[in-house]
Design a binder for these strands. Structure first.
Length: 445
RNA sequence: GGCCACUUGGCGGAGUGGUUACGCAGCGGCCUGCAAAGCCGUGGACGCCAGUUCGAAUCUGGCAGUGGCCUCCA
C-alpha cells in the first residue's frame, strides 16, 4: 500500500517514496522554550508523532528529529525579567514541554537537537553564505541576501513584490531589502552571546534548523514539518539559506504543515493570549483524551478547541476501553496488528478521523462477535499505531474503576451484590451512589 | 491592497459524480428490580446562485460568509 501525503510545496497530495529507503528522514520544528507550551504546540507534536509512528510502521529506519530552540530574544527577555541566565529559562521550559508531551503520549524523537549546541555549525553555515554572496554584513549584523535567491516565496506562495513591507513590523534600517533576514546579530555585553568572525553575538532564529538538519539528516531531507504559521517566514527562510548554502540542493522533498487551533473565531496564539496551556489542561483531562480530541480532526484542518470537544472525547475513549475491558488481558500486545482499513486511512494523508471511524466500528462489533479476541487485537493494534489505548484494564490508570483492587471498594461492591441478591434494592442503590461518588461506574452483568 | 484556505445534520467530522460514513447527543424498542453498558431500529446535512451532466453535496464559474499569512507564533 502506498503512502500519500499532502506536500505544501506543490500544494498536492503526493505518493511518498523516500529518497533513500534505508534512511527516511523527517524534521519537525519544535518549540522555543521561553514559557509553558499551549495546546497548539501540543497539536503539532501529536501530529508529527503520529506521522512518525505511521512512517515507522511503513518504512524501516526512520530518523525523526524535532528541535528545541533554546536561544532566542524571547528567552532573553524572560531571563532579564526573572534575573536568571537564559539557559535556566530554557532548561525549565524544556522540562515542562517534555513532561507535557509525555502525558500526551508523544514519543521522544530520535534526535532532539538544541540550538545552542550547534553554534559552530551555524557559524560555518553563515561563512559559506557570505562566500557565495548570499549574505552580507551590515551594521554588525549578518543578513541573508534574498535578492540572490530567485525561488524565494515559492513555499508560501508569495512574491516579494506583492508583499507589503513593514505591514506589521518596521523594516530595520540595515537591511538592503525588506525581506532580508538576520543570520547573526550582535549581543550586548550583559547578554548571552558567542564569539564569531563578525563579533560576539547570537544566531538568527531560522538558522538553527538549517544547520541542525544538515548536521544530522543531510542536505536534502524527505519530510520537513511544522505548524502552518511557520510557513512564512520561517520555512521560507530556511529553504533560502539551505539551498544557497548547499549548492542548490533542495532542503526538503516534502513539506507538511499542521493546521492551527482556534479559540472560538480566532487563532489560538501566544501573542493574542487566548491559549490553553498543556499543563493546565492536563490537570483536568487525561492526556489520551486530549490526544483523541486532536486526532479527531484532520491535521490540516483548523480545529476549534472547546470543552465540548474534550467532553465528547472522554465519552468516546471510555467506550473504547469498555469494549476491550478484560479481553485485553488475554492477549499479547505483540500480536496486535492494525486493521487494513485503518492503515489505508492513515496512509492517505494521515486521515485520522477516518481511521478513528473504523476503530469505533471495530469497537462496536466486539460485543456481538464470536471472535472477540481477534477484534480486540485489531482494535488495540490500530489504536496503538496512533498512540491511543495505551493502557490495559489492570493498569494503574484504572484504579478508580470496577477493576479496582482496593479492598474498601471491593468490599462495597461485594456488599452491593449481597444486597441485590437479597433484593434489598434500597441498600444496593445507596451503595451504588457511594461508588459513583468515588468515581466508580457500576456495570451489572 | 496582495496571496491562501475553509463552509457538510443539534455538535464533532470523513468521503464520494448516482448506493448508510462514523462518533457524541436525540427518539422508539429489547434487556434490566431500577440504572449503566450492550443490542435492534430511527429522524436529521451537504453556504447561496448559475453552468456542465442522464444525474452534482461532489466538477466549473460567480457571490456571500469565516479564517489564516504578508518578517513573534506549532
Amino acid at each position: 500500500m502506498e503512502f500519500k501525503i499532502y506536500n505544501s510545496y506543490t500544494r498536492k497530495k503526493e505518493i511518498f517514496i523516500p529518497a533513500n529507503p534505508n534512511k527516511v528522514t523527517m524534521y519537525a520544528c519544535g518549540p522555543t522554550v521561553y514559557g509553558p507550551g499551549h495546546i497548539g504546540n501540543g497539536r503539532s507534536a501529536i501530529v508529527f508523532d503520529c506521522l512518525a509512528r505511521v512512517l515507522r510502521f511503513k518504512f524501516d529506519n526512520l530518523v525523526y528529529a524535532r528541535n528545541i530552540t533554546d536561544i532566542d530574544d524571547k528567552i532573553i527577555n524572560v531571563s532579564k525579567r526573572e534575573k536568571v541566565e537564559s539557559s535556566v529559562i530554557a532548561k525549565k521550559f524544556t522540562k515542562q514541554y517534555h513532561d507535557d508531551f509525555k502525558k500526551l503520549y508523544v514519543l521522544a524523537p530520535d534526535i532532539e537537537p538544541f540550538a545552542t549546541n550547534y553554534i559552530d555549525q551555524m557559524i560555518k553555515f553563515i561563512d559559506n553564505l557570505l562566500k557565495n554572496n548570499s549574505a552580507y554584513l551590515s551594521d554588525s549584523h549578518v543578513l541573508f541576501n534574498v535578492s540572490n535567491f530567485p525561488d524565494y516565496g515559492k513555499l508560501s506562495g508569495r512574491k516579494i513584490e506583492e508583499m507589503k513591507p513593514g505591514a506589521r513590523i518596521e523594516v530595520a534600517s540595515y537591511k538592503k531589502n525588506p525581506s532580508d533576514f538576520v543570520l547573526w546579530k550582535p549581543s550586548p555585553e550583559n547578554e548571552i552571546g558567542w564569539d564569531s568572525p563578525w563579533g560576539r553575538g547570537r544566531p538568527g532564529w531560522h538558522l538553527e534548523c538549517s544547520a541542525m538538519i544538515k548536521e544530522h539528516l543531510g542536505e536534502t531531507i524527505d519530510i520537513h514539518g511544522g505548524g502552518e504559521d511557520l510557513t512564512f517566514p520561517h520555512h521560507e527562510n530556511e529553504i533560502a539559506q539551505s539551498v544557497c548554502c548547499n549548492e542548490n540542493n533542495p532542503l526538503a522533498r516534502f513539506w507538511v504543515h499542521n493546521g492551527l487551533l482556534r479559540s472560538e473565531n480566532t487563532k489560538m496564539s501566544k501573542s493574542l493570549g487566548n491559549f490553553v496551556l498543556m499543563k493546565d489542561l492536563l490537570k483536568e483531562y487525561d492526556g489520551e483524551v486530549i490526544r483523541l480530541a486532536i486526532l479527531s480532526s484532520h491535521y490540516r484542518q483548523p480545529l476549534i478547541w472547546s470543552n465540548d470537544l474534550l467532553n465528547q472525547s472522554i465519552k468516546t475513549l471510555d467506550k473504547l476501553y469498555l469494549s476491550i475491558a478484560s479481553y485485553d488481558l488475554e492477549i499479547d500486545i505483540e500480536d496486535c496488528n492494525p486493521d487494513e482499513e485503518v492503515l489505508s486511512a492513515l496512509y492517505d494523508d494521515l486521515n485520522t478521523p477516518k481511521a478513528l471511524a473504523k476503530i469505533f466500528s471495530i469497537s462496536k462489533s466486539i460485543s456481538k462477535s464470536e471472535n472477540k479476541i481477534n477484534l480486540v487485537k485489531s482494535l488495540i493494534g490500530s489504536a496503538n499505531l496512533i498512540g491511543l489505548l495505551n493502557h490495559r484494564s489492570d493498569d494503574e490508570k484504572f484504579k478508580n474503576n470496577i477493576y479496582d483492587t482496593d479492598e474498601k471498594i471491593q468490599n462495597l461492591i461485594k456488599e452491593r451484590k449481597l444486597a441485590r441478591d437479597n433484593k434489598d434494592y434500597l441498600e444496593s442503590d445507596r451503595i451504588r451512589d457511594i461508588l459513583i461518588k468515588l468515581g466508580i461506574k457500576i456495570n451489572d452483568k
